[in-house]
Design a protein around this nucleic acid. Sequence first.
DNA 1: CAACGGCTTCAACATTTCTTCAATATCATA
DNA 2: TATGATATTGAAGAAATGTTGAAGCCGTTG
Lengths: 225, 225
Amino acid sequence: MKILVVEDERGLRENITTYFSEEGNICESCCDLATAIAKLSIYHYDCILLDIGLPDGDGFAVLEYLKLNRRDEVVIIISARNSLDDKIRGLNIGADDYLTKPFHLAELKARVIAVYRRKAANGKNLLVFNEIIIDLHGRTVTVNDTPIVLTRKEYDMLLYFIANKGKVIAKNALAEHLWGDEIDMHNNFDFIYTHIKNLRKKIIDAGGKDYLESVYGIGYKFKAI
Amino acid sequence: MKILVVEDERGLRENITTYFSEEGNICESCCDLATAIAKLSIYHYDCILLDIGLPDGDGFAVLEYLKLNRRDEVVIIISARNSLDDKIRGLNIGADDYLTKPFHLAELKARVIAVYRRKAANGKNLLVFNEIIIDLHGRTVTVNDTPIVLTRKEYDMLLYFIANKGKVIAKNALAEHLWGDEIDMHNNFDFIYTHIKNLRKKIIDAGGKDYLESVYGIGYKFKAI
DNA sequence: CAACGGCTTCAACATTTCTTCAATATCATA
DNA sequence: TATGATATTGAAGAAATGTTGAAGCCGTTG
């Protein structure tokens, strides 16, 4: 999962970032409104953890930006203000959850997962796509009831593909999603071929269809059959 | 077990805290409503020992907070007020038990254990998972009827794993749960490896299966077979 | 104060995953 | 169809992470 943390308080920001990174997510962060919007205009995230009190304006602007551009990122507000008004306002503009500081990182994680699955799936902690079933908690995947073991990159990739099923995903968008800013964009992304190959093989070996359609010159599409 | 003691009378608070700490629990405390709610919004506890008469309001607010946020902590009210109304009210809002001051620590302990097991398991004093049987009262564990001796960390870890069986638990989430806020999150958590190793060995040596599955790059999962 | 148990640190080693690379195949288009 | 660009694949080295035993630390106990 790719997460953006918008939080000006350095310690908290780093804690959150470290935590979610170690959970196996790609985590980026920034500390003001302008950078947040700049990043959002370039990149796509699965989830945004948004502080309301920022040095150059309040976080509601981010929500408005997302709404205006019909984006589907999950937004969880993390705010020091515990006012009901803020909460209502935030949820009204499109936030998915509201958490008052201070909070337990484990709780934040639980909410991220909860909100993500509420948005992506059907209320359980399962993400189901035809014969592919992903247990978000157990981090396991089965194809036709055959369990398959995925590495981090493969798992993240599969999640990303299913979240964007039917859409063409450019190779560099995929790279960006899986590696964050760490990646040298002048790279030729050769390694993606390998990860695609491995994921494909694992799904097919377990009796699944070949969902990964390559789009010549662009990237890949997860066939939404 | 991780316990929060909310009690404004200093002597009693320290007695309880010391007592439960020495019993091998992680025990935190605070002396007013505001701090209690603040702590609860950050951390998760297994059990809350809650005084009703607090300097900045009455403890029922804590219960309301927990109910509102659909939390599952066990709450035992410890109050000087011996009115039936308070008791009924408390239990109605979601408290699990009610104890009138003064009381013996041993009795408090008994109630904590009773309530914890009532909630967690099957009405007995035992938490049973396949061939692993945990006696919450005696703080003993048997595997295939072979008693194994666990240290505090190992015991807490086992409890946490069983409570979250089937879910992947990140290394840092585990650290957070076992060491509370004392831990430096920049630590590499090397010691966890050792505790895992020891717990694993003790279970296997006693003839148990290897339930502790490591999830590369993330953490561990207690296999829910 | 010596012995002990439990917790943590460390370093060597084992395992898993990621990336690179080169050979081969496929595709778009001139 | 010939050509250059892009994709697929397997193998292998590099990097990251996990496992293990031993040793040190530290508070407790006798």
